[in-house]
C-alpha cells in the first residue's frame, strides 16, 4: 500500500512540477470540440516558437462547454488565451475587465481565425427530401438539435433558422418567430449538447434531420462511418465565428503577453490556416479555401452581426429569460 501511494505521489509530482521546467507555459482555455484542432496546432506552434526565440514552450489545454469555460476564467482560472465558439462568451470576459473591450479588432477577421456554418445531416439518400430550412417545419418532420437556450450549437441553429426566415420575401420578426416556433415544435427533444444530439440521431436513430456544425460532420463520419448519412447545405445559413482573445489580466501578471500574442497570431499563418482546413474548419485564407474547395462547398451565409446586430443584442432578445425562445414555450 505505501508503495502504491509513493507511486501515485510520484505521478502527481511529475504532472505538477515538471511543466515548470519548460521555459514558459501557456494555458489555452477552449470549447469542447476544439481539441483536435489544437492538438494538431500546438506542436506546429511549438516548432515555430523554438525556431524563432529558442525557447521551448509548454502548451496546456482546457476544454469544456464554452460558457462554462469563460465563467471559470472569470472566477480565476488562469487562462493566457481563450479560444471560444461564440463572441458572447468573450464579451462576458470583456465585461469583467479581463479582456480588452475591442478584442475583435486586435486580430484580423473579427478575431476569428476560421469559420464554420450550420448544415443538415440527414439519413442516407435523404428519404424525406429535406433541402432547405422551409422543409424542416413541414408537419411530421422530426428535427434534432441541442438545447437552443443552453448550448452554443443550439443557439447557432436557432439564429440560422431565424435569419433564414427573416430573409425570405416579406420576412419580419413576427414571421421569423412563427417559423422558428414551428421548427421547434418539430423537435422531439432538446439534446444536452452537440455530441448528445449526434448520438441521438446516429445511434438511437431518432429524427429525420440533425442540425450541426459543418465541421462536426467529419467527426460524425469518423465515429459512425461515412456512408451512414448525407450532408445537406441549405440555401442560406449562419456563419459561425470562433473568436480568440488574450486574457490581459493574466498575461500581464504572468509576463506571457508576447508568447500569447504570437500563439494567436500564428493561427493566421499558412500552417495555422492549413491546420484549420484539415480539421474541416473553413480557413480565412482565400487561397487555401480554394485548395480545399471540395470539402467546403459554396454556401450563402450571414453573420450574427449582420442580421442580429451582434451577440450583445441577439442574446437578450432571444436567449435570456423572457426572450423569444421562452415566449415560444409560454402556455398562453
Amino acid at each position: 500500500m505505501p508503495r502504491l501511494i509513493q507511486k501515485l505521489v510520484l505521478v502527481l509530482v511529475t504532472a505538477w512540477v515538471l511543466p515548470a521546467l519548460a521555459d514558459s507555459s501557456l494555458l489555452n482555455v477552449s470549447y469542447d470540440v476544439a481539441r483536435d484542432f489544437y492538438k494538431d496546432y500546438n506542436p506546429i506552434f511549438q516548432k515555430y516558437w523554438k525556431a524563432r526565440s529558442g525557447e521551448s514552450v509548454e502548451l496546456k489545454q482546457s476544454h469544456a462547454g464554452s460558457s462554462k469555460q469563460v465563467r471559470a476564467v472569470a472566477d480565476g482560472l488562469e487562462a493566457d488565451v481563450v479560444t471560444m465558439n461564440q463572441a458572447s462568451d468573450v464579451d462576458f470576459l470583456a465585461g469583467k475587465g479581463l479582456v480588452t473591450k475591442d478584442y475583435a479588432k486586435k486580430f484580423p477577421n473579427n478575431a476569428s481565425p476560421y469559420t464554420s456554418t450550420m448544415v443538415f445531416i440527414v439519413r442516407k439518400g435523404n428519404p424525406r427530401a429535406l433541402q432547405d430550412w422551409a422543409d424542416l417545419i413541414k408537419p411530421g418532420v422530426q428535427v434534432i438539435l441541442p438545447h437552443p437556450k443552453n448550448t452554443g450549437n443550439g443557439r447557432y441553429s436557432y439564429l440560422a433558422a431565424w435569419g433564414y426566415a427573416l430573409r425570405q420575401p416579406g420576412g419580419n420578426d413576427k414571421s421569423a418567430q412563427e417559423f422558428v416556433s414551428k421548427l421547434l415544435r418539430n423537435a422531439p427533444l432538446f439534446a444536452s449538447g452537440g455530441r448528445d444530439a449526434t448520438t441521438t440521431f446516429m445511434q438511437r436513430k431518432i429524427g429525420d434531420v440533425l442540425v450541426s456544425f459543418e465541421s462536426e460532420a467529419e467527426l460524425i463520419a469518423r465515429e459512425f462511418g461515412k456512408g451512414e448519412f448525407d450532408i445537406i447545405y441549405p440555401s442560406l445559413s449562419i456563419l459561425t465565428e470562433f473568436p480568440v482573445a488574450i486574457v490581459d489580466k493574466v498575461v500581464d501578471k504572468k509576463g506571457t503577453r508576447k508568447l500569447a500574442q504570437a500563439y494567436l497570431d500564428y493561427l493566421w499563418s499558412k500552417e495555422g490556416q492549413e491546420n484549420a482546413a484539415q480539421n474541416f474548419l473553413r480557413p480565412r485564407d482565400a487561397e487555401l479555401l480554394r485548395k480545399y474547395a471540395a470539402q467546403f462547398p459554396a454556401i450563402k451565409t450571414f453573420t450574427v452581426d449582420e442580421v442580429f446586430g451582434g451577440w450583445a443584442r441577439a442574446t437578450p432578445a432571444h436567449f435570456r429569460d423572457g426572450g423569444t425562445f421562452d415566449q415560444i414555450y409560454q402556455s398562453k
Binding site: 481539441r35 476544454h63 462554462k68 462536426e216
Partner: peptide
C-alpha cells in the same frame, strides 16, 4: 468537481471529467 476543476488536461482532469471530454470529442 467539474465546476471547480478548470479541466486542464493532464493536470486537473479527474477520470469522470476525462470521460465526458472524450465523449464530447467523438471518442466513444
Amino acid at each position: 468537481v467539474s465546476v471547480v476543476s478548470g479541466h486542464i488536461r493532464g493536470e486537473t482532469n479527474t477520470l469522470p471529467l476525462h470521460v465526458e471530454i472524450l465523449y464530447n470529442e467523438y471518442n466513444a
